[in-house]
Write a protein that binds this DNA or RNA. Structure first.
Length: 260
DNA sequence: CACACTGTTCGCTC
DNA sequence: CGAGCGAACAGTGT
């Protein structure tokens, strides 16, 4: 379930395996994952190399030696997989790049919610799609500004990629747990201090998660993620974690710790 | 078997 | 134009 810290790891992985190698083949098993015709991807990638990657939230932009920039979005179940033997193509490796050294980069996507796109310019794309700056780089001022026009539940707003790119379902729950904020607290009712505590929690969680390579089991013991399941109890209060729906998503929180 | 899960996107209302 | 809402999307896992 790739959110910001996981996609950060994918970036590091691709940087260390797949840059500066000429692309000799592109195989796509399911064209629904492509936002443009296959031939456009062939024209943009074959004979070129990947040169540099830029991550904004859950979006990974791959610059090439050509004029086009490849975007990978991993959806809910995606990950990259670099391998040598063609027989090792992963079961859900629906798109595969082959490099001149004979290695392959598979775009694994079990549930096919991920996709590839081609664009000319990252900033243009970011503005066209209302994608916020990456949560890791967002300032408190920018975060406040993004919340200023919003009225609905804080959890819903945190999931909006135009607010703070990269926050997903587990991170939103973790942020609100650490900021001791009820997921249904209305954004219009938040005080400055509450906004700051949400912002601080977000930053702390992102950096902690990246430090631990998004390996949840290694996170500090006071993180909700260890108890983000039915029947578990809150680390701080010992009270049972509750599961509710907010904005159609499953939401776990501690009713005693996160008051409305 | 019916449903949960994950993130984005669409279509609609206001 | 933009906020808000709910459904839709795919398909494996339970």
């Amino acid at each position: 379930m790739p959110e910001l810290p996981e996609v950060h790891g994918y970036k590091v992985y691709i940087d260390s395996t797949s840059l500066h190698k000429k692309i000799t083949a592109l195989d796509c098993r399911d064209k629904r994952l492509l936002k443009k015709p296959l031939v456009d991807f062939e024209n943009a990638l074959l004979g070129e190399s990947l040169t540099e990657t830029v991550r904004i939230g859950k979006y990974l932009f791959l610059k090439t030696t050509g004029p086009k920039i490849l975007i990978m979005h991993f959806g809910m179940t995606g990950r990259p997989n670099y391998y040598k033997d063609p027989d090792d193509r992963p079961r859900f490796g629906h798109i595969v790049l082959t490099f001149e050294n004979g290695f392959h980069l598979a775009f694994e996507n079990k549930r096919k919610f991920g996709w590839w796109e081609l664009v000319d310019d990252i900033e243009d794309y970011r503005k066209e799609t209302n994608l916020s700056k990456d949560a890791r780089e967002l300032s408190l001022e920018e975060f406040k500004e993004a919340l200023a026009t919003r009225k609905t539940d804080i959890k819903k707003v945190l999931l909006d990629q135009s607010v703070s790119a990269g926050v997903g379902n587990w991170m939103a729950d973790e942020i609100l747990y650490q900021a001791q904020m009820h997921p249904k607290h209305k954004v219009k009712d938040l005080t400055e201090a509450q906004i700051k505590s949400i912002y601080d929690a977000m930053k702390h969680i992102i950096e902690t998660a990246i430090e631990h390579d998004a390996h949840y089991a290694d996170f500090p013991e006071d993180f909700l993620i260890h108890n983000r399941k039915e029947g578990a109890t809150c680390y701080h209060t010992g009270v049972e974690i509750e599961k509710i729906k907010v904005g159609g998503r499953s939401t776990y929180f501690s009713p005693k710790w996160q008051k409305l």
